[in-house]
């Protein structure tokens, strides 16, 4: 799935990372707890989160993820977007809630990755 398809499915607003729209991704994870993302995620490319701070972006960067999606219509600050630019991460925001956003992407073919059940 391309990042621009994710944007379309979630009716999301792209805030940073236009150049990444044609990047292909296969896996995603949804979490508000960054320690869990760092502990259990492997090779997932997309982070879906309700945690609105710079650490959400930094965590994604540490894990080599390429896209962060904020749910429930959360609008990240300029500072957060700046960290995303520095790290080459696409950022979008969707008005869907976490469960719904994850479900829609799963149904469309994104999965949780090989190392997860």
């Amino acid at each position: 799935m391309l990042i621009k398809e994710i944007q379309k499915i979630l009716d999301a607003q792209l805030l940073v990372g236009e150049s990444l729209l044609d990047t292909e991704v296969h896996t995603a994870c949804g979490s508000d707890m960054m320690s869990d993302v760092l502990a259990f995620v492997k090779d997932q490319a997309v982070l879906i989160t309700g945690l609105l701070n710079q650490q959400a972006i930094r965590t994604a960067a540490m894990m080599d993820m390429v896209c962060v999606i904020f749910v429930r219509g959360k609008q990240p600050s300029e500072e957060i977007l700046e960290v995303a630019k520095e790290n080459g991460i696409a950022v979008m925001t969707t008005s869907y809630r976490m469960f719904t956003a994850c479900g829609m992407l799963y149904e469309a073919g994104l999965n949780g990755g090989l190392s997860t059940k």
């Binding site: 508000d32 707890m33 960054m34 320690s35 869990d36 760092l38 502990a39 945690l51 701070n53 650490q55 959400a56 965590t59």
Partner: peptide, 9 residues
Amino acid sequence: GLGFGAGMG
């Protein structure tokens, strides 16, 4: 509330 402190560090 900031996404850490789950005892995983």
